[in-house]
Design a protein around this nucleic acid. Structure first.
Lengths: 109, 109
DNA sequence: AAAATACATCGTAATATTGCGATATATAAT
DNA sequence: ATTATATATCGCAATATTACGATGTATTTT
């Protein structure tokens, strides 16, 4: 196979895993950190700062955009990317709830 | 290629992406939720509850164990799995810091 | 209009992930 | 000792991800 059986899981489980999967790559974490620090970011900046080819960075940006974690608008010749606040909020709520549901009271193993 | 260039990223970026990647699958989220609710969990329970084969669930458990997100001890014939509190704490700190670094003040795009 | 700039997309190769049947291993019960 | 129970591991097929050179597209400058 090689195909996740999404139909047997809840919408919440699928949504959370999709968001986390989009973030779970060091390059995409670096990109998001850069956007957060600068508030904004342009593909060309990242090409200079990270050690990846332009095509690769564009592809990572696309994945983050597809997951609606970032959004981009054309700004002349370049494209301005920034965090999508709605999705970020969903992420904070969903994953915050998930992380917080473990209280760490009783360790057994 | 097909191989992540970990050497060009920071240890923090690599560690966080490894942890998130281990969690970023609906089956593994379901497994973790089950462990958190019950405090403990056994492979056989999951086979009955999730709609996946025993071999598949065992493999997911192994991935969570390799990432040190859960730990397991042999309990007679079965194996008792539970959350690894140390890693959970790291996750809360690292990802909490990451999520919290975006303040959402100035939206631009 | 032509050249330059900034991204996106295509195509491809290497590697990783997902899922499962079959089989191995290890403890418990008979 | 044999059988049953519970997991782990192997091997495989299907699909997904990662990375990048080459090329396409769209805007800006000349």
């Amino acid at each position: 196979m090689g195909l996740t059986k999404t139909e047997i899981f809840t919408d919440e489980q699928n949504q959370l895993s999709t968001l986390l999967k989009a973030i779970a790559h060091p390059a995409r974490i670096a990109i998001l950190q850069r956007i957060i620090i600068s508030n904004t970011c342009i593909c060309g900046d990242l090409v200079g700062e990270l050690g990846l080819a332009q095509a690769t960075i564009s592809q990572h940006l696309k994945e983050l955009k597809t997951a609606k974690i970032i959004q981009g608008t054309i700004e002349g010749v370049s494209v301005c990317y920034c965090i999508n606040p709605k999705t970020w909020k969903i992420l904070e709520e969903q994953f915050g709830g998930f992380l917080g549901s473990y209280k760490g009271e009783t360790v057994c193993c």
